[in-house]
Computed example of a mutant assay.
Amino acid sequence: MGNLADRIEEYLKRILEQTSEGYIILQRSELAGEFDCVPSQINYVLDTRFTVERGYLVESRRGGGGYLRIIRLGLGLEGQYQQVMRQLIGDQLTRERCNGLVDRLLDEQIVTPREAALIKGILSGGSLSGEFRDWDLLRAHLMKNILTTLSRDDLV
Rank of each mutant, 00 (worst) to 15 (best):
I71M: 13
Q83E: 14
D36F: 12
L75C: 01
T51C: 09
R61E: 14
V58C: 09
I42G: 07
R49D: 03
E78S: 15
E34D: 05
E78Q: 14
D47Q: 14
R28Q: 14
G79D: 01
R61H: 08
I70N: 06
R49A: 06
L77C: 00
V45A: 07
L46G: 00
L77I: 12
Q41Y: 09
I71D: 00
I70H: 08
E34T: 04
G66R: 01
G66C: 07
E78P: 03
Y56R: 12
R49E: 07
D36P: 07
V45S: 10
G74H: 01
Q82Y: 04
Y56C: 12
R28M: 14
D47T: 10
P39E: 00
L75Y: 05
I70E: 02
T48L: 06
G64I: 06
G79R: 10
F50H: 08
R72I: 01
G79I: 03
I70W: 11
G74M: 02
E59T: 11
V38W: 03
G79F: 01
Q41W: 02
L46Q: 02
L46T: 04
L73G: 04
E30M: 10
Q82T: 14
E34K: 15
E53N: 13
N43I: 10
G65Q: 04
Y67C: 07
R28W: 00
S60M: 11
